[in-house]
Simulated scan of single mutants.
Amino acid sequence: MTLETAGPAIDETLVRALPKAEVHVHLEGCFDLADLLELARAADEPLPGPAATLFDVDTHDVPGGAPGALSAFLRFLDWEGGLVRTPEQAARAAYRFAARESASGVRYADVIINPTHWGAWHGRLGALFAAFAAGLDEAEQDGLCVVNLCASLLRQQSPAEAAELVDWIVEARPPRLVALSIDGDERAAGRTGPRFAEAFGRAADAGLRRTVHAGESSGPQGVWDALDLLRAERIDHGVRAAEDPTLLRRLADSQVPLGVCPRSNLALGLYPDRASHPLPALRAAGVAVTVNTDDPAAMGYRLESEWVACADAYGWGLADLAGLARASIAASFAPPELQAALLADVDRFVAGRTRS
């Protein structure tokens, strides 16, 4: 569904200048190589592989878990998060995330944090999230983008662990923590919607926003469960919905947005190439779609390069990218007044580019 093929050249400079949000990105996947080398040295921890190929996670000797690209990648995220031991390191990770997003032209981001990846902080979640908030406060004071936090469950956790996390969020109300998420390997964990329905119901009743990883390593059933059992306001990935015409109509009618991450899907072997990726089909069906990075540092790319790659692959022009920017802002959990301001900025940007 190409709205425009003429107009300004689509390149990374244009994409960086376009106001936008990012709604599907994990803090655990945003450590640059220099960050990891520094943290590993401070923690006196060995690298799981050679420094030059540290992000080639399928070659590393990181024990535990099921075989497969996604499982290996999740174990690597455990190793990364486990290197962060002090509040200063956690705050610096959050600050650098905001800087990374801002460098890509992101004006607001919902960043996902799964506490199970941060092994040194078990039993100290309050201190961890306080450190993240402190780093993001400093970043915003320095003129970087606004970032809020989505605390994520791991699919292998129990209903009791899920309830414990939700109860803590509701009672403590950590600064900047606005949403409950769930992530992990759908195929390895099996159907999890019924297991976590109560926890997500509590979160909804307490006013927390809800976003759910679904329709990635499993089929459309996970998306149905996210909508019907977990009261999801946003679906992270959701690409396997393209296999179910009834589900596509449900998503189009409800305008529950998908946080799609095409390059992540390719890197983890979900699709062999962009031509076979269902992103154009999802848009053509009228589904609200956003384009995001998932774990960009670990996978070696940035948001602007991903948008340009999609534009090149699918023939998108400025109007298409402006539509994606508006969709990203509308799909975000930013406060309504910030959403309105950012949408107005997109309109001004497009008007200026069109006149020129």
Rank of each mutant, 00 (worst) to 15 (best):
287 V>T: 05
73 F>K: 09
145 C>H: 06
189 A>N: 03
313 A>R: 13
247 L>I: 04
242 A>P: 03
89 Q>F: 01
247 L>E: 01
238 G>A: 06
138 E>Y: 15
308 V>I: 07
25 V>H: 14
280 P>D: 00
317 G>C: 02
153 L>T: 11
323 G>S: 06
233 E>I: 00
65 G>P: 02
33 L>V: 11
85 R>S: 10
88 E>C: 00
304 E>Y: 04
292 N>Q: 12
270 L>K: 04
36 L>F: 04
1 M>C: 13
70 L>H: 11
351 A>E: 11
139 A>D: 05
196 F>D: 06
30 C>L: 14
349 F>P: 03
58 D>H: 14
345 D>G: 08
356 S>Y: 13
347 D>I: 03
179 A>C: 06
296 P>F: 14
88 E>Y: 03
320 D>L: 03
122 H>Y: 12
265 N>C: 01
242 A>I: 07
230 L>C: 00
126 G>E: 01
336 P>E: 09
152 S>M: 10
7 G>Q: 06
216 E>S: 04
322 A>W: 03
221 Q>W: 09
191 R>T: 10
138 E>D: 15
228 D>S: 12
288 A>W: 10
214 A>C: 05
186 E>G: 08
14 L>E: 03
178 V>Y: 12
303 L>T: 14
167 D>G: 09
224 W>I: 01
104 S>E: 15
5 T>Y: 12
149 L>F: 05
316 W>P: 07
319 A>V: 14
63 P>L: 07
56 D>F: 09
229 L>E: 14
84 V>Q: 01
51 A>T: 07
268 L>A: 12
281 A>C: 02
125 L>A: 00
253 D>C: 11
223 V>L: 04
284 A>I: 09
244 D>C: 02
18 L>E: 08
262 P>A: 00
279 L>P: 02
316 W>A: 07
349 F>Q: 05
118 W>L: 03
344 A>N: 07
187 R>C: 14
162 A>G: 15
84 V>G: 02
276 S>Q: 15
31 F>P: 09
264 S>K: 06
84 V>H: 05
120 A>H: 04
136 L>R: 05
119 G>F: 07
320 D>E: 01
338 L>H: 06
139 A>N: 00
233 E>H: 02
160 A>H: 12
75 R>Q: 13
65 G>Y: 02
229 L>V: 09
76 F>Q: 15
175 P>D: 07
108 Y>A: 07
48 P>I: 06
209 R>M: 08
297 A>M: 13
11 D>F: 08
323 G>D: 04
146 V>M: 10
75 R>M: 10
72 A>H: 13
272 P>R: 14
75 R>H: 10
276 S>G: 14
288 A>P: 05
299 M>K: 11
107 R>G: 15
166 V>R: 05
88 E>V: 01
5 T>Q: 15
310 C>S: 05
321 L>E: 00
225 D>L: 04
207 G>R: 09
349 F>M: 00
92 R>V: 12
95 Y>F: 15
264 S>T: 11
1 M>H: 15
292 N>T: 12
